[in-house]
C-alpha cells in the first residue's frame, strides 16, 4: 500500500464519539455564520443604495419632469412623512406613495407602488398620478413574471406604454381592443396578452379609486 499519493487510505476505523460530531457541526455553523454576517454587512449598503437608486429612477420616469421625491404614508385621513427609501430609520412608517417635484419644488404628481395578480404571478407597478389633471401620467412595471414574448410586453411594448402618457381615471380606467381607443380613459390592449393587459388596467383602476380622493384632500 502506498501512502505517498494524495489518496486517503482507509485505516482501522474507530467510530468518533457523538460529542465530536456535535462539536464539528457547531464549529462549522459558527464559522459559517460569522462569514455570512461579514458578507451581509459588507454588501448591505450597496444593496440598499441600488434599491434606492432604482426607485428614484422609476419615480422620475413615471412622473415626467420630476427630479426630487418625498416619501409619504397614509395614516388615518392624511399623508404623513415616511421613511426615506434605502434607510431603515426607526419610527417613520414605510413609504406608500412618493411626492414627485421638479427642481423648483413644484409638486408635479405622485408615484404610487401597486400590485395585482397577473397571468402567472403578481405584477408590481409604479404608477405616476397627477391629481391636478385627475390622470395617470406614466406606468413602470417593477416586477412581473408574465409569459416571455407575450405577457411580458406589458413592460416592453412602446405602444402599450404610450397609453399611460395621459390616461384619464374618470369615470374608470377600461381596457379596449388594440386600435379601438377613442376616449382618454381607455387603454389599448396588447394583442395576444389580453390577460396581462387586463391585470395592469385592474391595478391602475384600483390605484385611481384608492388614491385619487386621498391625494385630492391632501393637496
Amino acid at each position: 500500500m502506498s501512502t505517498g499519493s494524495s489518496v486517503i487510505v482507509p485505516g482501522p476505523t474507530r467510530e468518533p464519539g457523538s460529542l465530536k460530531l456535535v462539536a464539528t457541526l457547531v464549529v462549522a455553523g459558527v464559522l459559517s455564520g460569522a462569514g455570512l454576517v461579514a458578507t451581509y454587512d459588507a454588501t448591505l449598503p450597496i444593496v440598499q443604495a441600488n434599491q434606492a437608486r432604482a426607485l428614484r429612477e422609476a419615480v422620475f420616469l413615471v412622473v415626467p419632469g420630476s427630479t426630487k421625491l418625498e416619501p409619504f404614508a397614509w395614516q388615518g385621513d392624511r399623508l404623513v412623512a415616511a421613511a426615506e427609501p434605502g434607510t431603515n430609520a426607526s419610527g417613520a412608517p414605510p413609504a406608500e406613495v412618493f411626492a414627485a417635484r421638479d427642481d423648483a419644488g413644484t409638486l408635479l404628481g405622485y408615484a404610487i407602488p401597486a400590485e395585482g395578480a397577473g397571468f402567472q404571478d403578481t405584477i408590481r407597478l409604479l404608477v405616476g398620478y397627477e391629481p391636478a389633471g385627475r390622470r395617470i401620467v406614466g406606468v413602470k412595471v417593477l416586477e412581473s413574471r408574465e409569459t416571455p414574448g407575450l405577457g411580458d410586453k406589458i413592460a416592453k411594448d412602446a405602444q402599450f406604454a404610450a397609453n399611460f402618457e395621459a390616461l384619464a381615471i374618470d369615470p374608470e380606467v377600461v381596457l379596449v381592443k388594440r386600435g379601438e381607443k377613442t376616449a382618454p380613459n381607455q387603454v389599448d390592449a396588447i394583442t395576444g396578452a389580453t390577460i396581462s393587459s387586463r391585470a395592469v388596467v385592474k391595478v391602475l383602476d384600483a390605484v385611481a379609486r384608492t388614491w385619487a380622493s386621498r391625494l385630492e384632500s391632501a393637496s
Binding site: T13, E15, P16, K20, L21, T24, L25, A28, G29, S32
Partner: peptide, 14 residues
C-alpha cells in the same frame, strides 16, 4: 478533520 458520520451535513453547511 471532518468525522465521517457528519461529513454530508458539514459539506452542506460549507
Amino acid at each position: 478533520v471532518i468525522p465521517k458520520p457528519v461529513r454530508i451535513s458539514t459539506y452542506i453547511v460549507i
